[in-house]
């Protein structure tokens, strides 16, 4: 069984870079080998589907982050040989923000994909 570890400083980090750093990752670079799946507009800001995937070799962690949340980090997944490096969850968003998927590799490098997800007040229509 895994040890129950919880990296408090990662989940209190205000920026993407600080959260990545808390897991030993360098300043993240944009990469086509990381995929973030998220909607253009959140249907419900309290439940926004997000998935992170990577085709890079040697990925240790996959992170999902929302830049403008009070703390950026939503979830950290450890990637093992037993699972595909493709994980999905649903997150809360208080406002329109860039959402990041970050892959941290065994050698401490970090790569990201990002996308703006709009959170709107709603109520109009054709």
């Amino acid at each position: 069984q895994f040890a129950w570890a919880f990296n408090k400083s990662a989940f209190e980090a205000k920026s993407i870079a600080d959260a990545v750093k808390a897991y030993g990752g360098a300043a993240p670079a944009e990469s086509k080998d990381v995929t973030l799946t998220a909607p253009d507009i959140a249907e419900n800001g309290a439940v926004v589907p997000m998935a992170a995937a990577s085709s890079l070799p040697g990925v240790k962690h996959l992170l999902i982050l929302v830049e403008k949340n009070p703390s950026a980090l939503v979830a950290k997944f450890d990637v093992s040989d037993a699972i595909e490096p493709n994980l999905a969850t649903r997150a809360k968003m208080g406002q329109t923000s860039d959402v990041y998927a970050v892959a941290i590799t065994n050698d401490g490098k970090a790569y990201y994909a990002k996308k703006e997800v709009k959170v709107t007040l709603g109520g109009c229509g054709g």
Binding site: N7, P49, S71, L73, V74, K76, F77, D78, T89
Partner: peptide, 17 residues
Amino acid sequence: LNAEWGPAVAKNPFLQF
């Protein structure tokens, strides 16, 4: 699978792997 989650994961959480 091993994951750490913060409070920004939505209520009644969903996970896919």
